[in-house]
Amino acid sequence: MAEYDAEDLAAQLASENSRENINKRRSQRKRRRRMAFFRSIFRLITTVILLAAVSIAGYYLIGWGVQAYRDVRDMYEAYLIRQEENRGAVDVRFDGYTNVLVLGLDDAVNMDDAEEKRADAILLISMENATGKVRILNIPRDTWTPMAHNKGETRLANVYAVGGAPLMVRTINQMFDISIHQYVVIDLVTFGQIIDAVGGIDLYIERDMDYDDPAAGLAIHMRQGYRHLDGKGAEYYLRYRSDDLGDLGRTQRQQKFVKAFYAKLLRVDTLPKVPKIADILKQNVTTSAELFDSVHLGNVIRKLSSEPPRTIMLPGDFSREDDTVWIMDRTAADEIIHELFPPEEAGQEKQEEKS
């Protein structure tokens, strides 16, 4: 009987242990299900929050992108309008060139003794985009010409006083039927700063130069021979005109100086001075070039040829009625322009002959 009770007690204990284990396992499964449920809820909430955040961020990002696009588009359209006002329409015939009109201003007075800026030096610089070759057409400031927009006739130097650089661009465009892509306007002080920044220019002065003009603040006294010209010396050399050739002689000196200056810019020892030159240009030079032009101009400058630029003076002669006025030779000028900017058909014929 005692054995029976022991066995019955053991069975009872085993049964209770089994139920307890079953209950534990059930409880554990319930906890796991609850945890799995809570984790699912948490992941769902987290996913919803992330999706909402991404949606909101995407909405604002898209809105910002659309607004940025509109701002850039409006800036570019405003840039096109300004360029149209500055230079007029650009003919596709000149897409292979970058033509820049450089105007050097003097400090003059008009008939009423009021200060009046006029173009003392007028250079049309044409850079061939593919080869980097540079051609410079030097136009005498006293060239007699009709102004654009039917504003009458005058010396080319006076056109700047009438309508600034935009009128100069359109007048020269009208004279030669050449599209001008950009213009640069520089005064005498800035010009001297740039010459000093590059370390001056070594040049042969072809004759003694003696000229005094107290009203203009000029006292030019330079001896013949090789000279190192700083900014002020370069200004005197280019402004001197008291010789038999007058303005023609000054134009020829401008051509000579431009070649020497170009060679100095391409020298290796000038490279460290480029930031200073750029700062001078940024602070004191007026130009039509803007941010949208920077990539193109940068590529053109990087390709500049090491060959000296070809300099050409506008053909013509002094007027019989006034020997201070330069009259352009239309036929000779047209031939030069045709040579510098050959028609597309002629260019194709040359390429076919070479091939």
Rank of each mutant, 00 (worst) to 15 (best):
3 E>F: 09
5 D>N: 14
6 A>C: 11
9 L>V: 08
10 A>N: 11
15 S>K: 15
19 R>S: 14
21 N>M: 15
27 S>E: 14
33 R>S: 12
36 A>Y: 12
36 A>M: 12
36 A>I: 10
42 F>C: 12
43 R>E: 12
47 T>V: 13
47 T>C: 14
53 A>L: 15
58 G>P: 03
60 Y>L: 14
60 Y>T: 14
60 Y>P: 04
62 I>P: 05
70 R>G: 08
70 R>W: 09
72 V>H: 13
76 Y>M: 00
82 R>F: 07
84 E>M: 15
87 R>L: 06
88 G>S: 01
88 G>E: 04
91 D>S: 15
91 D>G: 03
96 G>R: 11
101 L>E: 03
106 D>W: 05
113 D>R: 10
114 A>G: 10
114 A>I: 07
115 E>D: 12
118 R>V: 02
120 D>L: 04
121 A>V: 07
123 L>P: 02
126 S>Y: 00
130 A>H: 11
137 L>R: 00
137 L>C: 00
138 N>F: 10
150 N>I: 07
152 G>R: 00
157 A>Y: 03
157 A>H: 02
164 G>S: 01
165 A>Q: 02
166 P>R: 00
169 V>R: 05
173 N>L: 00
178 I>N: 04
194 I>V: 11
198 V>D: 08
201 I>N: 10
209 M>A: 03
212 D>L: 13
216 A>L: 08
218 L>C: 04
219 A>W: 11
219 A>I: 09
221 H>T: 05
224 Q>F: 06
225 G>S: 01
225 G>Q: 07
227 R>P: 01
230 D>R: 05
230 D>G: 03
231 G>Y: 02
231 G>F: 05
232 K>G: 10
237 Y>D: 03
240 Y>F: 15
251 T>R: 06
258 V>Q: 09
260 A>Y: 03
260 A>W: 05
260 A>G: 06
261 F>G: 03
263 A>W: 03
271 L>R: 10
271 L>A: 12
273 K>T: 12
278 A>N: 01
288 S>H: 03
293 D>Q: 01
296 H>N: 12
297 L>M: 01
297 L>Y: 02
305 S>L: 07
310 R>Y: 10
314 L>D: 04
319 S>I: 03
321 E>P: 04
328 M>I: 05
330 R>M: 03
335 E>P: 00
337 I>T: 01
337 I>M: 00
338 H>W: 10
339 E>D: 15
347 G>Y: 01
350 K>Q: 15
